[in-house]
Every structure is written in structure tokens, then in C-alpha cells.
């Protein structure tokens, strides 16, 4: 399959500060690729490298066969981009901003209008008077309004309400159906699970692994928060697929993987005063999964860490690296 994006040993340091280190990965044409990691993992750095806003310290990246630094303007002409923290000019209205974006991308000046109506964006209000969510809608409109073959989005649903998040996922699905490639950076695991075909997981500037999203750990893990009426020993939670990630007095945080019934059966026997079950966010995944190792973790479908190729055993080099820290 042809690669829409190729990263080869891509490294960026801002002086002494680490951005991304030795990233090697491919994004296939027509797929929705998640780029998942906690804040500060280096996701935005990778996107800025792709758009030629910053120069790699080492390595290189190509987008649709063109080097992102030496052919920056040509690369950007094939990308629709939504910044992680879109900064607009407060004195302009959304309409003026979107018309400007259309002209900069050589689109018809009213290309934005159908999408704005679909997302219920009031385009006549000066942007300084818009809420965070409405400002984010401008970004969503501008990223989907053009015909560019590659969409690059950095935390695209930040500030959007659940209805708009759902609409966003519909837009992603439509873009995928049109054969466009989507690179979606996020720290929201469920968003990546719902939108993406594959996802790369990055932490502290390094690629940990790349998997199909159905094999992502968060797909099977749940976060269980308990408030106990009376003390229970750690052994009370010694069940398959259960891990204590935090404990402070009577409050216990568990990560539970797989079948929940044995856990629920055990909880009935404990003095549980309060119980919350939630899907884990990326921080939880790293706490409960990557930091402590996961012997029952699924094998990586396509792992590249530090420029190395996947290990045939299925044991991920990334995880091995984490364990040996």
C-alpha cells in the first residue's frame, strides 16, 4: 500500500528540550491514522514538522512523496490543517476568517458555507465573542471544506460538545469514504478508537508502538474508582486483568481489563460506598498499561521504535524498552 506520510528517524530538539526522537512510521493513503499520547509527548511537534513550520534536527519526513522541509509550500498545498490551539484574529468574524482561508487555499470564497450551516456556526459574530466550542467549529469547517487529499488535525474535538463531536466523527467517516487520508493527533483515547483505523502511541517524544485501534489497550480496559466503607487489603483485588493504579486510604483506583463479571462479584463482597466506572483516558492507559507492563497485551501489528522494524515474536520492542527502564 502507498504511504501518504513517511517519517524516517524524525527527530526534533528545541535547543536542549526534546520534541520528538527518532520517529519512524508510515501512514497509508486513505486511512485514518491516530497519533495518540499524553500532553507533551511530541504530537504537535510532529505535526509542525509535517507542515514545515519547524525544521527536523535529524531524519526527514515526506508527505505524498515530497520532503516536508525542502518542498514545504507544495506539501502544504496538499494538506488541510487544524491547529491544536487555533488562534484567530478576534476582530474578524468567522465568515471573514473562513473566506480568508478559502482565498489562501485558492478555494471558492463560499466553500465554507455548507459546512458552517451543518455545524450550526454563527459566522457573523466577531470571533472574540465566540465560545471556545464555536471557535473550534471554525477550525473543523476549514479543515473539511477543501478537496485536499490529506487532513491533519491536532486535538480537533477540544471544546466541542458531544453532539458536535459526533458530527465530527461523521465528517471523518465521510472524508475516509472519499479516500482522503487523515492524521489525527489526540490525547483522547475514545476519540481515536471511534475515528481511526490505526494509531501510533507516543510518549516522552518516542514512538511506543503502532496498532490497529481495535487492539488498543483502552478498547478492553475500564477505570473503576471505588470508595470503600471499610478497609480491604490489596489482595482483595487480586483478580485476572485487574490492577490497582492508585490507592489513598479508602479510595481505590483500578484498571480492569476484559470480563467485568469477576470484579463485580468481588465488589459485592466488599463494603463499597461509591463506585464509578469509566473508559480510561490516555493518561490512565499509560499509568495502567505502559508504565507497569501488560503481559496479556495484544501483539503489535506494526511496530517501529527507534527506526527498528517489528519483532517477529510479537513482543514489542517499545514495551521491552519501557520495562527495562
Amino acid at each position: 500500500m502507498i504511504s501518504a506520510i513517511e517519517f524516517r528517524g524524525l527527530t526534533k530538539f528545541y535547543g536542549q528540550r526534546r520534541g520528538i526522537v527518532d520517529l519512524t512510521a508510515d501512514v497509508r493513503e486513505g486511512e485514518v491514522f491516530g497519533f495518540l499520547g499524553p500532553n507533551g509527548a511530541g504530537k504537535t511537534t510532529v505535526i509542525r514538522l509535517m507542515l514545515g513550520f519547524i525544521r527536523p534536527t535529524e531524519g526527514h519526513a515526506t508527505v505524498l512523496g515530497r520532503d516536508v522541509w525542502t518542498s514545504s509550500a507544495a506539501v502544504r498545498s496538499s494538506i488541510a490543517y487544524l491547529s491544536g490551539e487555533p488562534a484567530y484574529l478576534g476582530e474578524l468574524t468567522a465568515e471573514e476568517t473562513l473566506r480568508f482561508m478559502c482565498r489562501v487555499r485558492e478555494l471558492d470564497a463560499d466553500t465554507w458555507r455548507p459546512l458552517a450551516e451543518r455545524l450550526d456556526l454563527d459566522a457573523r459574530v466577531p470571533i472574540r465573542k465566540l465560545s471556545r466550542g464555536n471557535r473550534q467549529k471554525i477550525g473543523v469547517v476549514q479543515v473539511f471544506m477543501g478537496p485536499e487529499p490529506l487532513l491533519v488535525m491536532d486535538e480537533p474535538t477540544t471544546g466541542l460538545d458531544p453532539l458536535m463531536q459526533r458530527e465530527f466523527l461523521h465528517l471523518v467517516a465521510e472524508a475516509r469514504a472519499e479516500g482522503r487520508t487523515i492524521f489525527l493527533s489526540s490525547h483522547n483515547l475514545s476519540e481515536v478508537e471511534r475515528a481511526c483505523d490505526r494509531a501510533a502511541i507516543v510518549r516522552e517524544g518516542r514512538l511506543v508502538e503502532i496498532r490497529p485501534v481495535r487492539e488498543l489497550p483502552g478498547d478492553h480496559w475500564r477505570r473503576v474508582s471505588l470508595v470503600l466503607g471499610s478497609a480491604a487489603p490489596d489482595e482483595a483485588f487480586d483478580l485476572p486483568g485487574v490492577r490497582i493504579v492508585d490507592r489513598a486510604g479508602d479510595e481505590v483506583e483500578l484498571m480492569v481489563r476484559g470480563d467485568a463479571r469477576p470484579v463485580l462479584a468481588r465488589l459485592i463482597r466488599l463494603d463499597v460506598r461509591d463506585l464509578t466506572i469509566s473508559t480510561p483516558d490516555i493518561e490512565d492507559v499509560f499509568l495502567g498499561y505502559y508504565d507497569r507492563g501488560a503481559p496479556d497485551a495484544p501483539p503489535a501489528e506494526n511496530l517501529v521504535v527507534g527506526g527498528r522494524t517489528p519483532e517477529p515474536s510479537g513482543q514489542t520492542a517499545g514495551r521491552t524498552e519501557e520495562r527495562t527502564r
Binding site: 507542515l51 513550520f53 498545498s77 490551539e85 488562534a87 476568517t97 482561508m101 489562501v104 485558492e106
Partner: peptide, 15 residues
């Protein structure tokens, strides 16, 4: 500094 530059520069425009 404010991040606005990413908007005009995300199009075809050269630096």
C-alpha cells in the same frame, strides 16, 4: 507567538 501565523501559512503560501 500567538499562533495566528499557522493559519495563513497552512495554505500554499511560501514563507
Amino acid at each position: 507567538e500567538r499562533g495566528w501565523i499557522e493559519t495563513p501559512m497552512s495554505g500554499h503560501l511560501s514563507r
